[in-house]
Amino acid sequence: MTTPQLSPPPPTVTTADGTHPGGASQPAPPRTRVRRTGRRIARLAVVVAVLLAVSAGANAVLTVREGLTQPYGHLITLPGGGKVNASVSGNGEETFVIMPGFGSASPVLEFAPLVEDLDDHATVVVVEPFGYGWSDRQTSADRTVENMATELHQSLAALHVHQPYTLVAHSIGALYALDYVNRFPGEVRAVVTIDGSPPIDAVAAEAPQSRWLRLWTLSGVTRWVSMVEPTLFVRAPRDTYSEAALRQLRMLVLRNDSTPALVEESHRMRQNVQATKGLSFPAELPVLAFVAQETIDVSPEWLPAHQEQLDGLVRSKLIVMDGSHYLHYDHSPGIADAVRTFLDSPARTR
């Protein structure tokens, strides 16, 4: 019996595009798939790089154009060098000095609603620290509480601000106000804090900013995001500002994003908290504290820290308001009325 001879299988033939002549596709070798994936990633990287380059170029052109905008207020040259911007509203004998929270792109515009509610019968001064508003974006002076207070004092002296004045401090501005009243005690009539930061570890633990964050602004990403969703950067309700004011606010958000002065200030936060932990408001100084319910809800030590600051003062009051950290957006008329009532009342209100 003859054993049948089996013919060897025909060789596999593929075309140049990797398909079988019969039409059936054959799986590509692993190396081929890796090369294809690599080429796709490379093409995608080129597209992204081109888009970022175009975005950065357009952003640079718009930044130069916006830089020609006429600044509000006027610049003050400080004795230590550098210029800060200041705005003065109203002409009443009572004087309020606004101290902004950390990183406010434009203190003058941010507090405009509150200023309008205060300046009918008073003078309201807003001094923008280095890195804020139209002030110089950097300074050689360290961002310590001492320097922050001294620069404000020098600015008020240059403006010939009538003494005594009331400090109105928001957020981290309250920390600087605490140092200020101990450094220049005879010049301050009262202190008003708007969800002010007390010298507690929770404030010291806030993460410092990185200089690399400015790459988002330089690339144009921050600009396009702010145009699509402006409330991410301008936290006020949409009907708070005119379109012209919103455009200027967005421009200043881009101008002052992660400036050298702001980055350095953020890195000094822990040191500044430690420097003020041993300080207290002078016993005879009237202090009115507005505290946001939303902040109390997320920080259990927030309310007790404010209550402790007011203990032992001859005249003080604490008012808890519904709302976010930015109470001056939603409650500026109520804040202004409460401030006037508090200052006009000679009796202890606690």
Results as ranks from 00 to 15, higher is better:
T3C: 03
P4N: 02
P9E: 06
P11V: 14
P11F: 14
P11D: 11
T14D: 01
D17T: 13
P27Y: 15
R31A: 14
T32C: 05
R33I: 09
A42I: 02
L44C: 03
A45S: 11
V46T: 14
A49P: 07
L51R: 07
A58T: 13
N59V: 01
A60W: 09
V61L: 07
T63I: 04
V64H: 05
E66Y: 04
T69L: 14
P71E: 14
P71M: 10
L75D: 14
L75F: 13
T77R: 08
L78K: 00
L78M: 02
P79C: 09
G81S: 09
V88P: 15
G90H: 00
G103H: 07
S104G: 07
S104H: 11
S104M: 11
A105M: 13
A105I: 08
S106H: 09
S106W: 10
L109C: 04
E110T: 05
A112V: 01
P113I: 02
P113V: 08
V115D: 12
L118A: 05
A122V: 01
T123W: 05
V124Q: 12
V124I: 06
V126G: 07
V127Q: 00
G131Q: 06
G131H: 03
S135G: 12
S140N: 12
N147Q: 08
T150H: 04
A158H: 03
T166K: 11
L167W: 00
L167I: 01
A169L: 04
I172P: 04
A174P: 15
L175E: 13
L175Q: 15
L178G: 07
Y180L: 00
V181I: 11
N182T: 01
R183W: 00
F184N: 00
P185D: 02
G186S: 04
V191C: 15
D195K: 08
S197T: 05
S197W: 12
P199L: 13
P199W: 13
A202G: 15
A205I: 03
E206M: 09
Q209E: 15
W212V: 03
L215R: 10
G220L: 08
V221R: 10
T231I: 14
F233Y: 14
V234W: 02
R235L: 15
P237S: 02
Y241S: 02
Y241L: 08
R247S: 15
L249T: 00
R250T: 09
M251D: 08
L252Q: 11
L252A: 14
L254P: 01
P260V: 05
A261R: 10
E264H: 11
H267P: 09
R268G: 03
R268Y: 07
M269I: 06
R270V: 06
Q271T: 14
N272Y: 06
Q274A: 15
T276R: 05
T276W: 06
K277N: 05
G278M: 10
F281Y: 13
A283Y: 11
L285T: 00
L288D: 00
L288M: 06
A292N: 01
E294P: 08
D297H: 05
V298R: 13
P304D: 07
E308C: 02
Q309A: 12
Q309M: 13
D311W: 04
D311R: 13
G312D: 09
L313Y: 10
S316W: 03
S316C: 04
V320Y: 03
M321D: 10
M321C: 10
D322L: 02
D322K: 09
G323Y: 06
S324L: 01
H325E: 14
Y329C: 03
S332F: 09
G334F: 00
I335A: 14
F342E: 08
D344Y: 01
R348Q: 13
R350C: 12
